[in-house]
Design a protein around this nucleic acid. Structure first.
Lengths: 252, 252
DNA sequence: TTATTTTGTGCGATATATGAACAAATGTCA
DNA sequence: TGACATTTGTTCATATATCGCACAAAATAA
């Protein structure tokens, strides 16, 4: 791609949108400039553009995103057949298991939820389509990283912030790579409170007919009710069933 | 705002993202140009920028959005306290009612789902945060339109495509305005299969402490199980309970 | 008050959009 | 099949718009 095939004003604007998040619902021009490391004048123009288009509100001091911004992500969710395809199967799975079921894909070092069927809340985190978790310590993340060539998996781990979320969290690259090998061989991943104390989950890959892993699905359960040791016998058959039901639908 | 406070390259890029959707997961440059009514050269630059940043894939012919695009909508969902605040209450509500419960806000002529707790699927449509429905024929839509000044409500209806989705759908502006008046007076809206045959729903507004309606919550149920006439006695008390529980939390 | 931070603006340097021209691919019809 | 017409993608020159700096004004803090 040539230099001039890149619209930097657009790229800068997207960076400004991403500056909003978590504890940053209201951003002043200066704050947004600091977060994005862009010039204040540039950030100001981007924010005013967002406001002019109705993607943001401006009270003269702070900018906040409006729900219109959801149109952008929704363009993906409705444009990609995967979420709509998975949803009914997740509903069914979730009901049979009596636990939350989710589907996600890989984006860099994170997994991104693309569909979810929740039974009551077990996690402290509020997960919705678009939510992100670090791949290295999530059951679906391990399933999505497992099929990658080792060099690529290592590169992703190297870019990941391998944080010790709980005493159980595996943070050693070699250990994780070995775990990926096991996941590849056995076809599932189990997480025992590595992300959050009290939460276990089990995931399997969803492959298309070429055998490429395109997504992962999982079931999460409170460790208090379902010890990690029981996750496999309780939920793996259900997950395999869903996996098998989805296979013929993924012709691509 | 001055002319030069507007970054048109950014605005054009956002328009290109929105061109993706529904049956448009794969767009060629020419298709995207037609949909956005922008110059082919301009669209090409925007799409290549998206690809360069990892928001889109390019196979040399077609562009498709990647899950990274969800970061943009997620910036809103995680930045705005409302979805996270509502979610546990929706879970509770959904469980008590044994039906799906949702929350939405208004964006132009549409309602946008910002949180949802689903029991088994009753609708043919797959609703997730970010999903949109026309406001005029949705229970939450009526609740969100009701508090607006009549002139504003009429303006929105005028911009809406008042489609006869089912034989029950109200499409007459005057009739809808009269219904808004009733909703304002009685504090709830009921939809009896106006969006889709077989689906009833009931909604109430969520106000902040200044009395401004900031969102709506609803319960949807299959008409076969719960006739519209029973929606009120069955679910209105539960909705009012949730509404009351939320009131002190919306200090803003 | 002064000091500090934040926001708004003018301007030259630089980057982008435009529309036409061309090349390549695709489709159409005899 | 081959010749022609269309559509699509790409490139280029130039008119135009944006960027980022420097400074001024305003707001905020000390």
């Amino acid at each position: 791609m040539r230099e001039t095939d890149f619209v930097s004003g657009f790229a800068r604007g997207l960076k400004v949108i991403e500056a909003f998040g978590e504890t940053r619902q209201r951003l002043s021009i200066a704050e947004a400039a600091k977060l994005t490391e862009l010039d204040r004048a540039t950030v100001r123009r981007s924010l005013l553009t967002l406001a002019e288009l109705g993607y943001a509100d401006y009270d003269g001091k702070f900018f906040t995103l409006t729900p219109k911004i959801l149109r952008l992500g929704h363009a993906y969710l409705s444009a990609t057949p995967l979420p709509a395809l998975l949803q009914p199967h997740l509903d069914h799975l979730s009901e049979k298991a009596g636990q939350s079921a989710s589907a996600s894909v890989l984006d860099g070092t994170d997994i991104v939820y693309i569909a979810r069927a929740s039974q009551r809340r077990v996690m402290s985190i509020n997960l919705t389509p678009g939510s992100r978790l670090p791949a290295y310590c999530a059951s679906m993340g391990r399933v999505l990283l497992a099929p990658l060539p080792e060099s690529e998996a290592r590169a992703i781990l190297a870019r990941s912030e391998l944080k010790q979320n709980t005493p159980n969290t595996k943070t050693d690259s070699d250990e994780l790579i070995a775990e990926f090998r096991r996941v590849r061989a056995e076809g599932y991943a189990i997480i025992d409170q590595e992300l959050e104390i009290g939460l276990c989950s089990i995931a399997v890959p969803i492959d298309n007919d070429r055998g490429e892993t395109v997504a992962a699905i999982n079931i999460g359960a409170p460790a208090a009710l379902v010890p990690a040791a029981e996750m496999k016998e309780r939920y793996l058959p259900l997950l395999k069933e869903t996996q098998a039901a989805l296979r013929p639908l993924l012709r691509r």
